[in-house]
Design a protein around this nucleic acid. Structure first.
Length: 822
RNA sequence: GCGAGAGUGGCGGAACAGGCAGACGCGCCGGACUUAGGAUCCGGUGCCCUCGGGCGUAGGGGUUCGACUCCCCUCUCUCGCACCA
């Protein structure tokens, strides 16, 4: 055993031993230990692991290892989210097949994970781009298809002109492509959707039990994303149209304040309603609107525009005739694509009314100044005015009454709308799971039978680059040409592939039976493991990935495949690793290379630095933290273990109650609690304190006395066991240096002796007028009366009182006395 | 604009339930050992000070014997959403 601390040599020493013993493999069905399923969001193979991976997986590993050390049967799996557009683009840039590029990266990442010492059960390893995996992604698609939850629809979709593909709403950030930042345009294409909106209410309701277990802001983001609004549908007759036009409003109480009517300019309805003499103006307006980018449309200070359509709508309750406009501030996709405009109580309507000199009629008196004069719409509570039979009602009562009256007359009904849209999953790209549908001239749209899955991606030999909005798979003509599973006639395959979020929204169901060739997931295994007890990953997936996973689990539950409705019982979003105040990027030149950091400090020091920097959810600025400092601490532990190792193994700390034993057991007690709350930074601070206490004892000659040496050994061994969850290599080597057999990871979490945790003597603070004036060492069991009289006679108290009398004394034995002078 | 969260030393951050503010670490200062130190070990380190104390958790007010912690107002920052009717 060498005496020079070389962190990277420890990796080579212990990795083969751990792997040979299989110590991180989950127990089988007969394993009686309590089970825990810990999942890190699986990586995307875009290159080697980076600093962000190191942080996320350090957190997940600490959680998984802590559970293992406490005697749980832990499933800690790993896989790769290996389909997707970035890999495809990167491969084409290099003139490579996406498959080769992807699997080469996976190999590199897997080896990096190994050497980083993450406690994965490698038997679970899966890749979403394996036919053995995407076969079941296709099976899940068909599961939704048969339930009517997957459907095809021609619609105006978000189009990224650079990536040449359709994007889900969720992938458009402020009008730009999430991936390449180019300005998104619109296209009319027939696309596949999952009907996630049908699950909107359940996605909302089922969040209640997640309170306190998921980050609050993630729940808020999901709620906002779903965007449930309650109100009413109201039918307005429009001249020259048989059917009334329906609007959605959250403020039916303001119906008498509607002074005009607006339909979305780009909707079919606007086109239909346009009067002949307005056609020219309307057409040119729509052209202007269409040519504007999303960015321009979303400019905050953008003036309201629109055109009068030459018709009027009839207010169903008041009978008033109001003009109908087309405008781009009304969205075709939200609600019904038409609104009643109440300028007095809606700022957007007011802005439009002022731009077009339309009347503004206040119908709810909120006590604020008239919006017609101020230009500020009022939205608060108030009393109805100018509203015929509803005058005098308060807002809430009026909403109820108006809605009821509309319903009674068949002119409307209570309604709920959502911001959430159905999940658009078709992608005109090569590197994804093909959609398992064929089109037959005789039978139409036909599902590929389950036993013909997977529909494999054609291997190569085609131009696989996206062109002109056509899926690259269209050029694979002999792949496209197939036979209809129903009639045996000629048929064509769907040439789109699925959004990779489909792949990643069910992988945690596959892990426990990752290589099962008969089914997507094993219900028996899932009964043992699922749902995921702890999920760890970046906040960038707080909406998309988490919402889609929640949706899919509910669908599979309803299909009778699963007996739970939420995939992730608890969620931690780790912060980002940044450098010198900015997110890392090659162009900023502030990229920190993970492998270089590991080469310099060893994997353990990098892990400890990540976890010690602050709470897991906080960002880490690598410029503010010190891998050197973490490395120094680990080296201290390692050297200490060598000194402890020279003391006799068999010595027993016995029943001694030395100060050091108390420190050890209090540390165990506290670190155990801190780990339960994922308070890794504080837990590490406590372990550092224990290290210093042990160092001090050894330097003070403790090793010369058998009893004291035994207490040092007890502390050192407890330290190694606890350290193992953060710094597995150093902990393991220290364990061996103290003369113990491998491995520390099987040694179990130390147990605190309650007798040593309880403080028998405590420090009592003596305050005068709330300021600390003295400190006392008193028995933890001291009575209030006794403590009061001792406190009053302390030097500090007497000096501070300076002859003044005592008004009252607050005694909180044994920790505090506060003397209040006259 | 709307919603959520956060402001503590030079820096990252501690403070369980209203009871010793600044644990632990970085940085800095000093010392020991040393041919040497970018190794190791030990000590110091919120600010001011007449060495008794005074001030101090963004700012202002309040509740309390006692407030980083609870309440109100203001300021600043971060994140999310952003014409969603």
């Amino acid at each position: 055993m060498t005496d020079t601390y070389d962190p990277n040599a420890l990796v080579d020493r212990w990795l083969p031993i751990w792997e040979q013993r299989g110590i991180f493999e989950a127990g089988g069905p007969d394993d009686e230990r309590p089970r825990k399923y810990v999942v890190d969001m699986f990586p995307y193979p875009s290159g080697d692991l980076h600093m962000g991976h190191a942080e996320a997986f350090s957190i997940g590993d600490a959680i998984a290892r802590f559970a293992m050390m406490r005697g749980a049967n832990v499933l800690h799996p790993i896989g790769w989210d290996s389909f997707g557009l970035p890999a495809e683009n990167a491969a084409f840039r290099r003139g490579l097949d996406p498959r080769d590029w992807t699997y080469a990266n996976i190999a590199v990442q897997a080896e990096s994970f190994r050497r980083f010492g993450i406690s994965f059960d490698w038997r679970t390893r899966l890749h979403t781009s394996d036919p053995q995996y995407y076969r079941w992604t296709q099976w899940i698609f068909l599961r939704l298809y048969r339930q009517g939850l997957a459907y095809r629809k021609a619609s105006l979709v978000n189009w990224c002109p650079v990536d040449q593909t359709v994007l889900a709403n969720e992938q458009v950030i402020a009008g730009r492509c999430e991936r390449c930042d180019s300005v998104v345009t619109k296209r009319n294409l027939t696309q596949w959707f999952f009907a996630i909106t049908r699950y909107a209410d359940r996605l909302l309701e089922d969040m209640v039990p997640l309170e306190g277990r998921w980050p609050e802001h993630v729940l808020t983001m999901q709620r906002n994303w779903i965007g449930r609004s309650t109100g009413a549908h109201v039918d307005f007759a429009v001249q020259g149209r048989l059917e009334p036009v329906r609007v959605f409003t959250t403020r039916p109480d303001t119906l008498y304040g509607a002074t005009f009517f607006v339909v979305a300019a780009d909707s079919a309805l606007a086109d239909e309603l346009c009067a002949d003499d307005r056609r020219a103006e309307f057409t040119s307006y729509v052209e202007t609107v269409r040519s504007e980018s999303e960015i321009e449309r979303m400019r905050e200070d953008r003036p309201k525009t629109g055109v009068f359509l030459g018709r009027h709508a009839i207010n169903p309750l008041s009978g008033e005739r109001i003009p109908v406009y087309a405008a781009d501030y009304v969205l075709a996709e939200y609600g019904t694509g038409a609104i009643m405009a109440v300028p007095a109580h809606d700022q957007r309507d007011l802005d439009f009314a002022r731009a077009f000199s339309l009347p503004v009629r206040m119908v709810v008196d909120t006590g604020n100044a008239d919006p017609a004069l101020t230009g500020i719409a009022t939205t608060g509570d108030g009393v109805l005015v100018n509203s015929g039979p509803y005058d005098g009602l308060r807002k809430a009562a009026a909403i109820q009454r108006v809605t009821d009256d509309l319903a009674a007359k068949g002119l409307g009904e209570p309604a709920v709308t959502y911001r959430l849209r159905d999940w658009l999953l078709s992608r005109q790209r090569y590197w994804g799971a093909p959609i398992p549908i064929v089109y037959c001239d005789a039978c139409g749209e036909v599902a590929v039978p389950d036993d013909e899955l997977p529909v494999r991606l054609p291997e190569s030999g085609y131009s696989l680059r996206p062109e002109g909005g056509l899926s690259p798979l269209q050029s694979a003509t002999d792949w496209v040409r197939t036979t209809c599973p129903r009639c045996g006639g000629e048929a064509r395959r769907d040439t789109d592939t699925m959004d990779t979020f489909v792949d990643s929204s069910w992988y945690f169901l596959r892990y426990p039976s990752a290589h099962d060739e008969r089914q997507a997931f094993d219900p028996g295994q899932l009964r043992r493991w699922a749902p995921v007890d702890q999920y760890v990953g970046g906040v960038e997936h707080a909406i998309l990935h988490c919402l889609y996973s929640r949706f899919l689990v509910k669908v599979l539950h309803d299909a009778g495949d699963l007996d739970f409705v939420e995939p992730f019982e608890a969620l931690i979003n780790q912060g980002q690793v940044i450098m010198a105040g900015a997110s890392m990027s090659k162009s900023k030149g502030n990229l920190v290379n993970l492998q270089e950091e590991i080469a310099k400090y060893g994997p353990d020091a990098v892990r400890v630095t990540m976890l010690f920097a602050g709470p897991p959810e906080d960002d880490i600025d690598w410029a503010d933290v010190s891998p050197t400092g973490s490395g120094k601490w680990l080296a201290r532990v390692w050297r200490l273990s060598g000194e402890i190792g020279r003391a006799a193994l068999e010595s027993d700390p016995g029943s001694g109650t030395s100060h050091l034993r108390q420190v050890t057991h209090r540390t165990i007690d506290e670190v155990t609690r801190l780990m339960t709350g994922s308070r890794f930074n504080v837990a590490i601070a406590r372990l550092m304190e224990l290290t210093s206490a042990l160092r001090k004892a050894v330097d003070g000659g403790a090793m010369d006395s058998p009893a004291e040496a035994a207490a040092v050994r007890e502390g050192g061994e407890a330290l190694a066991r606890m350290l193992s969850v953060f710094a597995p290599f150093v902990a393991e080597d220290s364990w061996a240096r103290m003369g113990q057999q491998p491995t520390v990871h099987e040694a179990g979490w130390p147990t605190a002796d309650p007798a040593l945790v309880v403080q028998d003597v405590v420090t009592c603070v003596v305050q005068v007028a709330g300021k600390v004036r003295d400190r006392l060492q008193v028995s933890a069991q001291i009575g209030a009366e006794e403590l009061r009289s001792i406190a009053l006679t302390t030097d500090g108290a007497r000096r501070a009182l300076d002859g003044r009398g005592v008004q009252t004394v607050i005694v909180r034995p044994p920790k505090l006395v506060n003397i209040v002078p006259v």
